[in-house]
Amino acid sequence: MDDIILQILNGLDKGSAYALIALGLTLIFGTLGVVNFAHGALFMIGAFCAVTLQKLLSLERIEVSATEKTAWGTPLEIKTPYAELWFGHDFGAAIIDWSVPLAILFAIPVMLAIGYVMERGLIKHFYKRPHADQILVTFGLAIVLQELIKHYYGANPIPTPAPSAFRGSFDFGVLLGFDAGSIIYPYWRMVYFAFSAVIIGAVFAFLQFTTFGMVVRAGMADRETVGLLGINIDRRFTIMFGLAAAVAGLAGVMYTPINSPNYHMGMDFLVLSFVVVVVGGMGSLPGAVLAGFLLGILESFASYSPIKNFFETWLFLPSIDQIIIYLVAIIILLTRPRGLMGRKGVMED
């Protein structure tokens, strides 16, 4: 039982990332009708916002020693972070320690700006083009973005730890009446899940309870009629693109302590997030969130060795952990062609 609870918990944080990316994808597809294969790259750029802020906050004053040398023969460099020089040792160290949460403030304007520039500079030219063109151009853009990141930050993962207050893990075993240490879950993953819930809730509240959101929802249902009412729906949709980029970026920022970011992390999530969107139902925001968590948990269970061994031994399906999401997607689409929460008439022109 404790193992089952653990796998559910594990699925929640991965599901949170899937849900946040899929939410942005659905928003863009629902509003602009664009299949955005660069959305994974936006997640990755968000993560590198955290890396950048960490690097900026850790900038050091370098003094070259006149007498001492390194073991490899170059003059010894004595480095002191500017943050510690300017704000004192303790406060300066605390600022560096909290660089990931602080990166949220840094990432929001950066991601909104990137989203705006991307939409106005490139995506808008492909609104009326076939989906295949949109996929090609956004996929190409994703590769350009990831190569740029690799050029400036290198190919290796960059450690971006959580604040020391959130390192370590919580013992759910004791809380739920199991043996101590049997259900351990890292604090930061709990933070990530809570953060995702807040972001998802905020997006839904924004769409549900504001006039802006109401117009966007109306535009998603019937763009032409909203236009005929004299509302500039394009401008609102551009803002939604920026918002979707910001959601993906924030998901990336907060994911950095879970997996050290590298230039390829966006691609790792992209395809699976598309499957999540399709399984949830094209254009359905609740469907994207539901499918994100569902597939995250399923993937987690498929990685559990007794289940993995069962599939390999009895069903002759090795590496079920790698294919479970696609298998489930096939089954769901065969039985519910519009996905879990897709509605008739939506995105079916």
């Binding site: 997996n259 269970f301 559990y304 060795s305």
Partner: peptide, 21 residues
């Protein structure tokens, strides 16, 4: 136990959690 993990994997939490028990 010996569990094979895919070369492309980035999140190992689902493989690590069962180690606990």
């Amino acid at each position: 136990n010996n569990v094979l993990t895919p070369l492309a994997a980035t999140d190992f939490s689902a493989y690590i959690a069962p180690v606990l028990n």
